[in-house]
Design a protein around this nucleic acid. Structure first.
Lengths: 180, 180
DNA sequence: AGGTGCAGTGCAACCAGTTGCATAGGTACA
DNA sequence: TGTACCTATGCAACTGGTTGCACTGCACCT
């Protein structure tokens, strides 16, 4: 139970509309906490009713009106309350692992190809992360406070992708050897 | 959409009741695909109606009757169909990352302690995985087919946990340095 | 003139998963 | 004797998230 809090963190960094938030979730923050625009709109409304955020309607010319949300005092209080609360460890739910485990029930070449495909996808995402690292954090030793935290989250993404890609390579090699 | 398939894979390895499956999911397979007994019972019934599995009621003395499920021909067909189908990349949803990103909004020491707690939990799980590896796969170079696949899935778990623990260490060191 | 795509918000239906509870007999321990 | 835990199945209510669709209007390309 924490899309609320992901939105609060994002809105604390910068106020924005539901649409803008959905864009942010597609980029940076959504890599660690995915959300659709639907889900975001719904949660925003709920938080508005609860008083955690307030919105101001902004008329724009050429494009539709938008509602810009900002975190209220109650929202900040809720955020700090949540930060102090213990968080459940993240659960992973990996269909690829299940597939590999069942690989011998079908054509093993099919699963091998699937692993190769996933490897490529994760390698691409790794490149994106590394690009962000070089662009936004060229001197990591000098970072402090919020910038440091953001950098460390990115490091987590990089490490996870690296380790996934390495695993794929191990699997690909082992499956090839087993097949021949 | 794949609890169905996780159950089918597990039942192919060995037939069993809903209760037994729930135990298996608590141990091995559930590390990669968690499920509660509720969810398992419900899906089993649905798959029974769809003809993917069949059950035989078994009376036991001293303990309640049970229904032992086994995969039908239709179930096997569905499994191989699914194996050939491309799988979406697993999404991660990590509250700890969100917390770290918002760490400067609260007491930074609180988040540091939280990371340390998670590190301990994942290190413990890593030990469990390594224990399984030593007990069940002492000679990995000799593995083939199903055993090899099972070993490789375990390797994925080990790699993921190792990389998470390493990340925690990086974060802990950086946060300590930043605080002082 | 027509299609695609972006900005912006939203409803309704659905699906997957969680939580709380119920039932029932057995074993094990204090 | 009471309590707690294990085996075994299941209902009901709820929560979180997905999918499909709808409406508006501008910009850009062909």
């Amino acid at each position: 139970m924490a899309l609320e809090h992901a939105i609060l963190v994002s809105l604390t960094e910068r106020a924005g509309s539901g649409y803008e938030l959905a864009r942010r979730f597609d980029r940076s923050i959504g890599y660690f906490w995915p959300a659709t625009h639907q889900q975001i709109y719904r949660v925003l409304r709920r938080m508005d009713e609860a008083g955690w955020v307030r919105h101001t309607e902004i008329a724009q010319d050429g494009r539709p009106d938008k509602k810009v949300y900002r975190v209220s005092a109650a929202g900040k209080a809720e955020l700090t309350r949540w930060l102090a609360e213990p968080e459940d460890p993240a659960v992973l739910r990996d269909g690829l692992g299940v597939k590999l485990r069942g690989a011998s029930l079908g054509d093993p070449g099919v699963v091998l190809a699937e692993i190769e495909r996933h490897r490529a996808e994760h390698a691409a995402r790794l490149e994106v992360y590394r690009g962000i690292q070089q662009r936004d954090f060229p001197k990591p030793a000098k970072l402090h406070g919020r910038d440091l935290h953001q950098y460390l989250v990115l490091r987590g993404g990089i490490r996870a992708e690296e380790s996934f890609v390495d695993w794929c390579d191990e699997v690909i090699e082992a499956l090839r050897k087993d097949k021949s």
